[in-house]
Write a protein that binds this DNA or RNA. Sequence first.
RNA 1: CGGGGCGUAGCGCAGUCUGGUAGCGCAUCUGGUUUGGGACCAGAGGGUCGCGUGUUCGAAUCACGCCGCCCCGACCA
Length: 499
Amino acid sequence: MADTAITPTREQNYPEWYQQVIIAADMAENSPVRGCMVIKPWGYAVWENMQGVLDRMFKDTGHVNAYFPLLIPLSFLEKEAAHVEGFAKECAVVTHHRLKGDGHGKLVPDGELEEPLIIRPTSETIIGHQFAKWVKSYRDLPILINQWCNVMRWEMRTRMFLRTAEFLWQEGHTVHATAKEAQAETLQMLDVYADFAEQYMAMPVIKGMKTSDERFPGAVDTYTIEALMQDRKALQAGTSHFLGQNFAKASEIKYLSSEGQEEFAWTTSWGVSTRLIGGLIMTHSDDNGFVAPPRIAPLHVVIIPIYRNDEEKAQVLEYVQSLAKELKQQNYSGSGLRVKIDDRDMRGGEKAWQYIKQGVPLRVEVGPRDMAKGEVFVGRRDKGPKEKASQARADFVAGVPHILQEIQDGLLAKAKKFRDDNIKRIHSLADFEAYFKGDDASAPGFAMVPWCEEGVGHDLLGKLKVTPRCIPLQQEPIQGNCIFSGKPATKWVLFAKSY
RNA sequence: CGGGGCGUAGCGCAGUCUGGUAGCGCAUCUGGUUUGGGACCAGAGGGUCGCGUGUUCGAAUCACGCCGCCCCGACCA
């Protein structure tokens, strides 16, 4: 056996390591359909936990859930000019509504549709169409809606979780009477995303506004949370868009104001996807596999009973069942502890390694010796696989919530330090080039660059495969000149190689 | 859509150059020995060799055509 559970290691081949972690943790696998993935129970459990927290946060900020159709009339996509440009090339199109036999055992499309339908790449157009009917008066506003669904974008190159042709997400869509209110909503949801990423996923993010080139097609302003992965590439982890009146005009969302004037409404949209799981994997996992932050881990504690014969088995199982019961009564992050006893007929070591690869925060091994002493033998996922220690059973049970929070905090602190250690302030084009040159496998991290706010176009960016990630909301005082134009700088801009 | 590579057991591969009745490792199942740690021994099950046509006494292997997938670009939540 290799000395790490995952081969290759991050150091040896990061992209391959990423794939292997997903397979070893049994989170997902490729499907027979190009670019699509099967999310297996362990991966889906992570998503369900993320959904649970986000859904509560959305509801706490006044949103309600609804559902809109998968299929959208093609003509809807044509309504907003920039939106057409942005999405037309990557849409799956439905042109027929049944199949017929060709007489040789094959099925061929039959029944051509008068108007083709597209599979939603995002739902602004169809939701806007419905909103137009729902909004008549200023009294109907605001509309604060979210939907959990799948969308499809026919991407050229895909990677599990990070970019798949079909992916799961939530998309929030809101309508407001004023620009100010819509802008406040956009920023509020960006904060929700940032809080979720940091407090639950232990993934530090930088909040900022996208530069015009990176904006969502059809948006006035796009805000983003940007995270740094362990290979020092950036990941756009969530976006929130102020759509101005662009979609309101395209879909004719109009209302009568309290002054009796007909006005176009102001809309927003915001989303995070299963891509976050990819970010989670690349933020915390190590050469032994996935590391699940306790607050969204499918299991908090796995108990592995150790025994030699049926008599011992009966005794140990009784002991661990009462242990599991006590643990489940403990509370962590708003719910009972998630605990499982694994009494499969397998060797203990093999089970232990499986849970290491799956990232379970705490492994408890209990055999006759522990039982006799009223102890448990505990391993933590944030420590080495063999760094395990005995502990009095009662102390352990009472202390688990505290240990879990310690692991959670440790993951965030470690990720934050890594992120902060890999942000560099750069004041000249030459330094910028020196920082970013090198192949894709050796991304250096984030660069903070002084900028004059007049576009960031430069040939160097394409050559270095570097993109502006965002204009951070939190700006520090700046002096000096824009590295692109040489004019006095007014803002710091964040650059990186990215996913 | 350009450039490269690959389709043989559930997974990973050898065999193809030089045509001769399909093999290895892992996984699975059975029996045994083990048992505080990703066990060991013995045995078993499992494949129209991507599809089609051709050459041949004989094709995984040669020829032609097709299909699919992966990697590198353009595109990207």
